[in-house]
């Protein structure tokens, strides 16, 4: 059991971890090793580095700084987050389930949606981003999941007892999982067709597959995916926060690129600090009340 689980180990996540840890809380940072920062060749506009610094060095320095403070850091991708009956959060990763009083999203933004014709048009009309929310509407029907990793399998496990059949479509990618109990089709997808709702998927070879529903679970789950499932308010896939980095759900905070605005290290560091302190204050208030 942790006080605070921070998802993401870039500037926002590490900054949040440092402030929360120094405020006397017990922190876990989960890192899926996919920070945008690592890809930045050189950062010239960040305070205190007259010669600039490479993104990967800055990232590694942040990780080291957290380790020096004895902050728990695990390289595990998050698959699912649920509020349990004790008003705590169960965070399920590829390997474990961790529980905490508070969650801070510092995931960065997920890469853009794939360019498949019809993807936006049919959202809510046969296209869903949340198996646990919408599976009910596909009872005994044939559905597909567009995805290629553990997250797709996790969504499949939420559907398997409800629907008639599940096919995983990797859209041209090699699946990130070794084997699974579902039919897997790797062909690239060109469009989603239908009249009032989804009816079929068209592949690049011109053939089609009839389907009643499409669940999107591409790559690893991003913060906006969790937000949709948990009922966190978003705006164009950014998480809405107030000046304390609080979301609309108690104990859940967000910081860095996922809140939108300036996609810069300094903004992520600032927001991380605020989120870390806000979460620590929340923990202290909760301890007093308990």
């Amino acid at each position: 059991m942790y006080d605070i689980i921070i998802i993401g180990a870039g500037p926002a996540g590490i900054s949040a971890a440092i402030y929360a840890k120094r405020a006397g809380t017990n922190v876990l940072v989960l890192d899926n090793d996919n920070s945008e920062l690592i890809k930045a060749h050189k950062i010239d506009n960040y305070y205190g580095f007259p010669e600039g610094i490479s993104g990967s060095t800055l990232y590694d320095n942040g990780i080291q700084q957290a380790k020096n403070l004895e902050i728990d850091l695990k390289k595990e991708a998050v698959l699912n987050i649920k509020m349990n009956e004790n008003m705590c959060y169960d965070v399920k990763t590829s390997d474990n389930i961790y529980t905490s009083d508070s969650v801070i999203f510092a995931t960065g933004t997920k890469k853009a949606k794939p360019l498949i014709k019809g993807l936006n048009e049919f959202e809510g009309k046969g296209i869903s981003y949340c198996a646990i929310c919408d599976g009910f509407f596909y009872r005994k029907k044939d559905v597909v999941i567009i995805g290629d990793g553990d997250y797709a399998l996790s969504e499949a496990s939420d559907l398997v007892n409800i629907v008639n059949s599940i096919t995983i479509l990797t859209n041209g990618k090699e699946p990130g999982f070794e084997n699974c109990n579902y039919k897997v089709d790797k062909r690239p997808i060109t469009s989603i067709n239908g009249d009032m709702k989804v009816e079929e998927i068209e592949f690049s070879d011109g053939s089609t597959l009839k389907t009643d529903g499409i669940f999107i679970a591409i790559g690893s789950a991003g913060a906006s995916d969790f937000a949709k499932k948990m009922g966190i308010m978003t705006n164009n896939d950014n998480i809405k926060v107030n000046e304390h980095m609080e979301t609309n759900i108690k104990g859940v905070y967000a910081c860095g690129n996922i809140t939108g605005g300036l996609l810069q290290v300094n903004k992520a560091v600032y927001e991380g600090a605020v989120a870390g302190l806000s979460a620590a204050n929340y923990i202290k208030a909760k301890r007093k009340g308990a």
């Binding site: 809510g124 009309k125 046969g126 919408d134 596909y138």
Partner: peptide, 18 residues
């Protein structure tokens, strides 16, 4: 929608909340 599935189907509601 659990108790009134017909209305949900009639209006093409396949995701909630709608």
């Amino acid at each position: 929608v659990d108790d009134n599935g017909e209305i949900a189907v009639k209006y093409g509601v396949m995701s909630i909340p709608t």
